[in-house]
């Protein structure tokens, strides 16, 4: 479960994220929508712990995440976060070693099969198309079987078939207890998400507290301090 308690971000005197309180439990897909430059990626980076909030705090399972807790977070940004000069396999092996993924070879093979890039495993990432690079970026994020998935435009560059496959993979992981936060412009996906969060000019316009998987009726919207 990830919780933001009045977390805000100010950089160079500019408010990038107004205070936001948000609590997302396991088994939920949250869609973050908003216009370009609204602060969606900023929200995701604060959630991931890449940017420390200027005020407030971000909690993972009720505590401030330490180094070991970062293994529970799978992050996909708009950039692939991969090394173009390394092959797909070398990239996944490198990050797998950093994440201490057990049975790394088997895990890479399973993810390559899931995202259909088995035949590109020994190709340098720099030579992959945008769609294949995105598949590998998703595989990199899913490598340590994280419980919190923070995905920024995960469908970018994917063909419709792969879009569906990634959605299925995401749903399967969420059904197994993961929490997914997906920044997207795909209104169809956002419409099907369990929780929808709209961001505009650094303000999170709506938030929900969802302490566990359940139907829409069981969810409890909150109007915590700092919400518009």
């Amino acid at each position: 479960m990830i919780e933001l308690r009045r977390a805000s971000l100010i950089r160079n005197g500019r408010i990038l994220l107004h205070p936001v309180s948000l609590c997302l439990g396991p088994g939920l897909v949250t869609a973050v929508t908003g216009p370009n430059g609204a602060g969606k990626t900023t929200l995701l980076r604060v959630m991931a712990g890449l940017w420390r909030p200027s005020e407030g705090e971000v909690l993972l399972d009720g505590k401030i995440p330490g180094a070991a807790d970062r293994a529970q977070i799978g992050l996909v940004l708009q950039e692939s976060m991969l090394y173009g000069g390394l092959t797909v396999r070398e990239n996944l092996r490198f990050f797998g070693r950093l994440y201490r993924v057990p049975d790394l070879g088997g895990r890479i093979a399973a993810l390559a099969e899931e995202f259909a890039f088995e035949r590109r495993l020994d190709d340098p990432v720099a030579r992959l198309s945008k769609g294949y690079t995105q598949r590998v970026a998703l595989a990199r994020a899913f490598l340590p079987a994280p419980r919190l998935l923070l995905l920024d435009e995960p469908f970018d560059g994917l063909d419709p078939g792969m879009h569906e496959l990634v959605t299925e993979g995401l749903t399967r992981r969420v059904q197994n207890g993961a929490t997914a936060v997906v920044v997207t412009h795909d209104l169809d996906f956002a419409g099907r998400a369990d929780v929808r969060v709209a961001v505009n000019r650094g303000r999170v316009n709506a938030s929900f507290s969802a302490l566990g998987a359940g139907s829409a009726n069981e969810r409890r919207p909150t109007q915590g301090p700092g919400h518009a």
């Binding site: 712990g49 890449l50 180094a67 970062r70 293994a71 992050l75 173009g84």
Partner: peptide
């Protein structure tokens, strides 16, 4: 620049190791 291309730097920062 190895880390800056495609922001692999963030991948390193997210690793569960002492930074």
């Amino acid at each position: 620049s190895f880390e800056e291309e495609q922001k692999a730097w963030y991948g390193l920062l997210m690793a569960p190791v002492d930074r």
